[in-house]
Simulated scan of single mutants.
Amino acid sequence: MSPDTLANPYTIVDQVALITGAGGAIGGAVARVFARSGGAKVALADLAGNPRHHELAEQLRAEGFEALVERVVTELGPVDVLVNNAGIADNTPFWETAFEDWRRGLTVHLDGTYLLTRHVIESMRERGSGNIVTMSSIAAQQGALTGDAAYSAAKAGQQGFTKTLAQTLGPSGIRANCIAPGVVDTPLLHSVHDEESLGRILQRVPMRSLIDPENIATTALYLASPGSAHVTGQTIDVGGMVMR
């Protein structure tokens, strides 16, 4: 590392970071942390018409950060950091899950991760550097408490995908890692759990509290930064395991 990097190893100044699902709580937190702490040029990708997506972009612009709001990877220029964060969840038990809903869960998490990674990887290989951070879940290891089997299966698949990327792309200077959040305080969580259900879950969590999305975001910044230069193919659990 250079002296400048050693002085502040957890920064990604002047790098282009593309974050999917940026209109959500975790994606938005990652965008804010990257822009404020990392000094990155942040590109926000989400569903068209998501108002939180556009509000966040305007907020970051107002603070003087360059926010590139694009949905198509080919329009972004070279991407240094890709954060595969877009996701959905359901509280339907597996035995009541329609096949189209099963496929939708796999498509959003696995196909989405594949397609975006596929679009940025050639440029990263040509430049000999790049960083892919994929948002998995504690459900990959423990199963989804709601019974959303597509979610837990896809999140486990993301971890296997990441290990393969790390093995095959490491010689090209590209790193790939996963984050497995526990019980994060997001609208998505509250949409599938009522207060009683959340109370029962928190009794199984060592810290007995919901995780702030910015705790996930700072982990993403660590993985994207030179401070984790030899960390690849790993899944970092944030929030402790949900104890059985």
Rank of each mutant, 00 (worst) to 15 (best):
H230T: 09
R32K: 14
F161P: 11
P3M: 13
E70W: 10
G27H: 11
A180H: 15
A17N: 04
N50H: 11
K163F: 01
A139H: 10
A40I: 01
P226I: 01
G157E: 07
H119D: 15
L189P: 02
A154P: 00
T117K: 02
F65N: 10
V205D: 02
D148R: 00
R127Y: 08
G77Q: 08
V108L: 12
A43F: 11
T117M: 04
A67T: 09
D101R: 09
A220E: 01
T11F: 05
N85E: 07
M1S: 14
A43E: 01
A67Y: 07
R118M: 04
V33I: 12
A29Y: 06
H230M: 15
S129Q: 06
F161E: 03
E63A: 13
Q203D: 11
M241F: 14
R104E: 12
V13T: 13
V108Q: 06
L60M: 04
T219L: 08
I138N: 03
D194L: 06
L223I: 06
G87E: 09
G239E: 06
R52L: 07
G128L: 05
I236F: 07
V73E: 11
S137W: 09
I26A: 01
T164Q: 14
Q142M: 10
D111K: 03
E126G: 07
L189T: 04
Q234L: 06
V72N: 12
A7Y: 07
S123P: 00
R36H: 15
V108N: 06
S137Q: 10
L18R: 12
G130D: 01
A89W: 05
G227Q: 05
L198R: 13
L221V: 07
N85D: 15
V184I: 10
P213F: 14
V79T: 03
T168R: 10
D90S: 13
L82Y: 08
T235L: 12
T164F: 06
A89V: 08
V133S: 06
P78D: 15
Q234P: 00
V238C: 05
H54V: 11
D80Y: 08
P206L: 05
I132Y: 10
I12W: 15
F65G: 10
A150K: 02
I26Y: 02
A154N: 02
P78L: 15
H119M: 13
G112S: 00
G21Y: 09
I201L: 11
A7G: 03
I216Q: 14
E58H: 08
E55V: 07
D80N: 07
T146P: 02
R104K: 14
E63F: 04
V79H: 02
Y222A: 04
S136I: 05
E196Y: 03
G64V: 03
S172W: 12
R127K: 10
G130R: 01
G240C: 09
D4F: 06
A31Q: 10
V72R: 09
S172R: 04
T186P: 02
A150T: 07
S123F: 00
V183Q: 01
A40V: 03
T134Q: 05
S172I: 02
A48N: 05
E75C: 10
V13F: 12
G160T: 03
A57G: 14
L110T: 01
H54L: 07
I201M: 12
A153W: 02
A25R: 11
L198Q: 03
V30T: 03
V133I: 13
